[in-house]
Design a protein around this nucleic acid. Structure first.
Lengths: 361, 361
DNA sequence: TTGTAGGCGTTATCAA
DNA sequence: TTGATAACGCCTACAA
């Protein structure tokens, strides 16, 4: 069916090895034969078979990625970053999605990756409930190098994640600095590690500012704008003195904003709002939303780079120093929902954990 | 490095072929040997190598997908649908992203798919400018079956797309039915086929209603909310009598809504708005947005099913009847931005081009 | 500079 | 019911 090296070799009147050398640009070859071989390749429309190459070379130049929740801006950005860097480094990408559920059995997915002999795996699913209990030495044993995204760093694992706690602290501190005292929070689902981190950051700032956090000030949403509406209604009911709201993401902030409008509250004078994510629409919310930007595209790119290094290391010497952690910082984007006048100022702090994407080798 | 069939065979004291039969559940095998083989598999931790299997069986059980613009809800939904159906049908998915640019050379991506011997390809990139000129018989020659998404159906190609024209007609007709006469349109970039289709649908309704469409009534955005703001400002400048706006997507509608608020216009009494996409946030816009829902998850799922059938067909007999077209209908979701009162009614028409996802064989 | 032999891990063919 | 042998398409080692 397909044209093979043999066919080309026969056509060009040389050996298969010579054709192989031409295809892979290796070894010294006389200009004449190279010419002849290339002509034969063109003529026959030869396309190399990576499966056969992978079989003998024991590497597939393919990475596997497991993602989730592409309907949201964050995961999509991360995936885009992953794909781009993967391509730049010369890999292909096997792609799998996981439902947002504890129940899902991850092993079929891992098996399909192993069966296709991926050189490495990126686990781009948020830490939710106990959906990480599968991460055990025995399970990792049979796998190529893995980089985990968005989880509490654990010894022995390579992790790339956003500093959610500090991000939330920036949001809360901003409100405190503006003189707000009665600050409420709409969290994401607390089964999510990210949500708990953000809540912890919020509480830390409140404590330092000697501000109480009553149970009535904390409500739990599910990331959707609709849940933001519900949460804001609850807040107005159980904590009517609220002066500001920190939302776990921009969607919930949007929903909460809607309720504020319906209730005739002035934003930000009566109630100020801060979101999290800086989705592309957030500058066009009504009013434009102050929010915390995560650099998720970079999270994706960095994780691929880390995986690439891991793969190279494992091949060179068998020493396994897989435990590396990258914590990416956030930016506070200040807009009208907190300061009430046209502004789009970026407050970028000194980077504590700065990073660079390393150039391909 | 890895445990192979041979290792298992040796351990169990049988031939490799016998092990192969056990692994693939084929042929008759005595319970005793099966037992022994399975034990050896467990013991050694054997994982089959799909690369080797693909090499000999001439099929990789892998599909390739080329997508674009995951930052938007639509493409992400489509990709999610593709992934899910792909997994259900027992394939793996090789994933590639294309920048939104005419210039991009698609052949390296196609080559990487062919090199890995994907069984089929889904081209999930919108038709923009002349980014489809590569689709020529010669280029298609060397490829496995391909299904194209979101493009003008062409003879000889398999296409799955949303009926954008009819969708836009629903939106426009809804406004006409509400008694609006001076209706403007904010289009997506007109280099996109989808944008032109939606504009054509809009114009068709206007014509039937004996309503003029002046050049001043049509402005071109770039899908972003920010461009929606700019376009709405232009409209208010050059067509101040505007009573309603049809936007090319929900993001631009959001931006336009913001300008309406800033200008003190009442929605929908002064100006009504309709979007396109039904993004999850749209019920929480201010006011909630009437919009046209595309079933993009289904577009993805249907395209995979079509591809699967194509692959099966090509293998059975060599007859190539690749030209199939599926046109999926839209739903109009009516909300406050047009009717000004709490409502969330779905108008679902009789399906002209109904479809079912066929069960896996 | 070029060629030969052997093997990567699996499945198909044909015997036993 | 099982097994030996030959592919699948490519690359590495070693010669020539």
């Amino acid at each position: 069916m397909h044209v093979t090296l043999q066919d080309v070799a026969r056509q060009a009147g040389v050996s298969t090895k010579t054709v192989s050398r031409v295809v892979n640009n290796q070894g010294e070859i006389s200009a004449a034969t190279r010419q002849r071989v290339q002509q034969a390749i063109e003529q026959l429309g030869y396309r190399p078979n990576f499966l056969a190459r992978s079989l003998v070379s024991q590497r597939s130049s393919t990475l596997g990625v497991v993602a989730s929740g592409l309907g949201y801006f964050g995961p999509s950005s991360t995936l885009t970053g992953i794909e781009q860097r993967t391509f730049e480094l010369g890999y292909s990408l096997l792609f799998s999605l996981l439902p947002h559920s504890d129940e899902t059995n991850v092993f079929p997915i891992l098996d399909s990756f192993v069966a296709r002999r991926v050189d490495g795996i990126i686990w781009a699913v948020s830490e939710i409930g106990n959906n990480r209990t599968w991460i055990q030495p025995e399970a990792l044993q049979g796998l190529p190098p893995v980089v985990f995204l968005t989880m509490e760093p654990k010894p022995g694992l390579s992790v790339v994640t956003v500093d959610n706690r500090t991000g939330a602290m920036r949001a809360a501190q901003h409100l405190v600095d503006l003189g707000k005292r009665r600050i409420a929070v709409i969290t994401g689902p607390l089964a999510w590690w990210e949500s708990r981190e953000r809540l912890a950051g919020f509480k830390e700032v409140m404590q330092k500012a000697n501000l109480e956090v009553l149970p009535a000030q904390v409500v739990e949403g599910d990331w959707t704008a609709t849940s933001g509406r519900r949460c804001m209604l609850e807040l107005l009911e159980q904590y009517p003195q609220v002066e500001a709201v920190v939302a776990g993401n921009d969607q919930m902030a949007l929903g909460a904003l809607g309720i504020a409008h319906q209730s005739g509250l002035k934003v930000p004078d009566d109630v100020a709002f801060v979101g999290f994510d800086n989705v592309p629409d957030s500058p066009c919310f009504w009013p434009p939303l102050t929010t915390v930007e995560q650099h998720l595209f970079e999270v994706g790119a960095v994780s691929v780079q880390m995986l690439h290094n891991l793969i190279a290391t494992r091949q060179d010497d068998m020493v396994e120093l897989a435990s590396e952690v990258r914590l990416l910082q956030t930016d506070l984007i200040i807009r009208e929902s907190t300061i009430g006048m046209p502004a789009d100022k970026v407050v970028r702090p000194v980077e504590q954990d700065s990073f660079k994407i390393q150039p391909p080798k």
